[in-house]
Design a protein around this nucleic acid. Structure first.
Length: 493
RNA sequence: GGCGCAUUCGUCUAGUGGCCUAGGACACUGCCCUCUCAAGGCAGAGGCAGGGGUUCGACUCCCCUAUGCGCUACCA
């Protein structure tokens, strides 16, 4: 069914009723990748016909998340295009025209049933174990009956007249042919009584008018596709290609929701995931290049992406794997780049960092953070002189307080006399001291670590000392000395 | 209820009838490296949902069952 070389035009069409969900982001990404791979156009259209739930703020959030991920659109909000407008609420005349066309050709009809009646009948049908679909009673109304209903002041909706028999086959690029019996398709409302179109109608009209060649969207729309196909045909317009990508699930296999943790792209952005890592990770959710390649640049992914290689089964969003991948990308960043990305996170955590200081910290954290925000607790001790730790933590492994105190005093002596606080200048004498004291490196360095950072787990020692500087280091060591002395004395009492 | 989609290690996946004694990655376990934590190296454990066919031969094709999910709205 491939049309003879229609230019590739795909679209992502979110409804602005919240933020951009990772599932939506993946759908957008696949559309974008396909467009870029094919040299086609990626169009963004805002489906805001749900007046009650749509907000402008939400539109803004979605756009900024897309930009963050690096998915630029060729047509749509902010950039315009040949098929404006790109907001459905501004396209009402188009839907009305299409509706008139269908009405005129007998492919659609007015339905005077009220929502209450519909609901009651659906309930009754379900109770009797009958199919709950619309019973088509308005479809075969005589003119007189129609007039009578109209007099009652009922504002009609418009329904699409489905062919009552036969079947409709959806040719799906990911799933193959999917066959639906037409008698399963009921006469869906295409235009609500308030004059706004329903989703299934608006998408068809928009995709048609915007000359969309490939409809790549979530799996949940597959069952709607035969209805849409019938509308295309009634409108006498060639079908686009369809590709339905599977859903993204939470760790427990159920539909991804808030209780699974972060679901919006913005949350990942805020906690310090790199857009390039998220891009790579999302691309691999339901698609793979081969049996081993995972880390790929944006360009490599564009070049390698194939729609027919997309996996039809749902995928669980694995935070752990994302974390790993983000770590890989962080480690791959050059130091200045990482510093610039880190700085806002440090500032946000109220650490009084500046560019220069952040640059110096980078080598200390680059290998040990998975998300940018992790750096905060790794380096916070540089930004305060009030350390909170238990004095017991100053006692070295397999040592007692008195031994530790003695060792600490020797450390102070050594560091007072050391000519420079460069890493290299520090390491030699401290290692020699361990030997003199008959201690293992871990014992002595552990004591120093706690004394200057207040933590058992911290970045490498010499780099830390060097950045902290002689004065602050010695001050912290002396405080630790005092704390240990107190411990020793308390023991004696 | 009806219709539809899906089902390979815990997770993401490779696999399109013999290359599979099923490959890679995350996570996990052990060892190595090591000033803690990481990072890194090596090794290990772990899977074709179940049952029938088709075939000389099925992870791969067909059917059934099970399970999960979606649609069945004047939501999108």
């Amino acid at each position: 069914m491939s049309d003879q070389a229609r230019p590739v035009r795909v679209r992502f069409a979110p409804s602005p009723t919240g933020f951009l969900h990772v599932g939506g982001a993946r759908t957008a990404l696949f559309n974008w990748l396909f467009a870029r791979n094919q040299g086609g156009a990626f169009i963004l259209r805002i489906e805001d016909t749900d007046l009650m739930r749509s907000t402008e703020e939400s539109t803004g959030r979605i756009l900024s998340s897309l930009r963050w991920l690096g998915l630029d659109w060729d047509e749509g909000p902010g950039v315009g295009g040949d098929f404006e407008p790109y907001f459905q609420t501004q396209r009402l005349p188009f839907y009305r025209a299409a509706m008139e066309q269908l009405l005129g050709r007998g492919h659609a009809y007015y339905c005077y049933c009220t929502q209450e009646e519909l609901q009651a009948r659906r309930k009754a049908a379900l109770a009797q174990r009958r199919a709950p679909g619309y019973d088509r009673r308005c479809r075969y109304l005589t003119n007189d009956e129609r007039m009578a209903l109209a007099e009652e002041d009922r504002t009609p909706a418009v329904r699409f007249a489905m062919p009552p028999e036969g079947h409709t086959v959806v040719h799906d690029l990911i799933r193959g042919d999917v066959r639906f019996a037409n008698d399963q398709l009921d006469d869906l409302v295409i235009m609500k009584a308030d004059g706004t179109p329903t989703y299934n109608f608006a998408v068809v009209v928009d995709d048609m008018l915007m000359k969309i060649s490939h409809v790549i969207r979530g799996d949940e729309h597959l069952a709607n596709t035969p209805r849409q196909i019938r509308i295309y045909e009634a409108l006498e317009y060639p079908l686009p290609e369809f590709a339905h990508v599977s859903m993204i699930l939470g760790e427990d296999g159920s539909k991804l929701s808030k209780r699974h943790g972060a679901t919006s792209l913005a949350e990942y952005w805020e906690s310090g995931y790199l857009p390039e890592a998220m891009f790579n990770f999302l691309a691999l959710l339901g698609w793979a290049y081969d049996d081993k390649t995972e880390i790929m640049t944006r360009e490599e992914i564009i070049q390698r992406f194939r729609l027919d290689k997309v996996n039809p089964s749902p995928a669980v969003f694995s935070r752990q794997k994302l974390d790993w991948m983000n770590g890989v990308y962080i480690r791959g960043l050059d130091q200045d780049d990482l510093a610039m990305r880190l700085l806002p996170h440090l500032l946000q955590a109220d650490l009084k960092a500046d560019e220069g200081m952040t640059r110096r910290l980078v080598p200390l954290v680059q290998e040990r953070i998975k998300v940018l925000r992790d750096a905060v607790e790794l380096v916070d001790f540089f930004f305060t002189d009030k350390l909170h730790y238990q004095a017991e933590g100053l006692i070295g492994k397999k040592m007692d307080a008195a031994d530790s105190l003695q060792a600490l005093r020797r450390v102070v002596d050594v560091l007072e006399g050391v000519p420079s606080f460069d890493e290299e200048a520090l390491e030699r004498p401290l290692r020699e001291l361990t030997e003199q004291l008959g201690l293992k490196a871990g014992q002595l360095f552990g004591i120093i670590r706690v004394a200057i950072t207040g933590k058992q787990v911290a970045p490498p020692l010499f780099g830390t000392l060097s950045i902290l500087g002689r004065e602050r280091t010695l001050a912290r060591l002396r405080k630790a000395e005092a704390a240990l002395l107190k411990l020793v004395n308390d023991d004696r009492v």
